[in-house]
């Protein structure tokens, strides 16, 4: 009965979100589209770091890769935005393979530093290859009013990663990823090819950021190196996941919704205190609720992991 109620509620939410652009204002659609973006990003970070415990501290690199790939094929080759964004996802995956193959051998903080460094390398590369990327001046995309279709594409991506997370978390593949987080040495000794599993998780976690990077590049109409590779964006996705509950299905969604809403409602009023407030939120979340909202509920009421 309860399951049925939840399913009905979810269906209702989906219908409401699908119909929203028909009634909502242009501004409202843009805001919702950004919320979808954050859900997709947070959910993706959760896939690699929430499950395997490997802290991808430069995850925005995939977002930036997607944004640049998409913008380049739109501007230089005249591709339509949808295939261009999908290409962004594919390119992000290629990048994940190139980075992940060597770097996922690094342990603990060393992997985090390497990811941080690689993101900076990409940012510099984006300014350097001027012929392709427009360098520090950035790339302007031709004007196009497509917020509504992009809204749907963004929403589908967010829903897609969430579904993917559900599938993984309820499979032995997902359990095996978690053994890496729990005890990598024991996992290896129990016959799990940890390097391969980490790489799979890393590849899967790169796709959605690549796609949403492409979609938001199209939506914003302009990208530059500093706007698509900021460390702050990586941190924001991490805090969303941590706040909601890492390693769960709905934690990243909840975290993204709460933090994003807070950002829209509160921060806009305290523009000068923005960073100070965000810093305080980070410190509070890390110190007071490292398991996140759902993690705490899960422990308290002995709920399954698949919440």
């Amino acid at each position: 009965m309860r399951r049925l109620g939840l399913a009905a509620l979810a269906a209702l939410a989906v219908v409401a979100l699908a119909l929203y652009p028909l009634e909502g204002t242009g501004y409202g659609v843009r805001v919702m589209l950004q919320l979808f973006m954050w859900i997709a990003l947070a959910q993706s970070w959760n896939l690699i770091s929430g499950l395997t415990g490997y802290v991808s501290f430069g995850h925005v690199a995939f977002y930036g890769m997607g944004a640049y790939s998409t913008a380049i094929v739109i501007v230089r080759l005249g591709w339509p935005w949808l295939p261009a964004a999908l290409l962004g996802g594919a390119m992000a995956m290629v990048l994940a393979l190139v980075i992940g193959w060597p770097c996922l051998r690094l342990k603990g903080p060393y992997f985090a530093i390497a990811m941080l460094g690689l993101n900076e390398v990409l940012r510099v590369a984006a300014s350097y290859f001027e012929g392709l990327t427009g360098g520090g001046l950035g790339l302007s995309l031709p004007t196009l009013h497509a917020s509504v279709p992009i809204y749907y594409a963004m929403g589908l991506t967010a829903a897609g990663v969430t579904l993917l997370t559900y599938v993984i978390l309820t499979s032995r593949f997902g359990l095996r990823l978690m053994t890496i987080r729990e005890d990598e040495v024991a996992a290896e000794a129990m016959g799990i090819d940890t390097h391969r599993y980490k790489l799979y998780a890393f590849l899967l976690s790169a796709v959605a950021p690549g796609i949403v990077g492409g979609l938001s590049a199209r939506d914003q109409g302009y990208i530059e190196p500093i706007s698509v590779f900021p460390l702050l964006m990586t941190i924001t996705m991490i805090v969303m996941v941590l706040f909601g509950g890492k390693g769960t299905i709905w934690g990243p969604v909840l975290g993204a919704v709460l933090l994003f809403t807070f950002q829209e409602l509160v921060w806009a009023r305290f523009i000068y205190l923005h960073q100070l407030l965000f810093g305080a939120i980070i410190v509070t979340v890390v110190l007071l609720m490292p398991r996140g909202i759902l993690g705490v509920l899960q422990q308290k009421y002995n709920l399954p992991r698949t919440i």
Binding site: F57, L276, G279, I282
Partner: peptide
């Protein structure tokens, strides 16, 4: 390591903001 990285990042942006103010 995630906790300490995030915590010190939080401190870091707070310090930058204080300096801006």
């Amino acid at each position: 390591e995630l906790s300490s990285l995030l915590l010190t990042f939080g401190v870091s942006i707070a310090l930058v903001n204080v300096a801006q103010l």
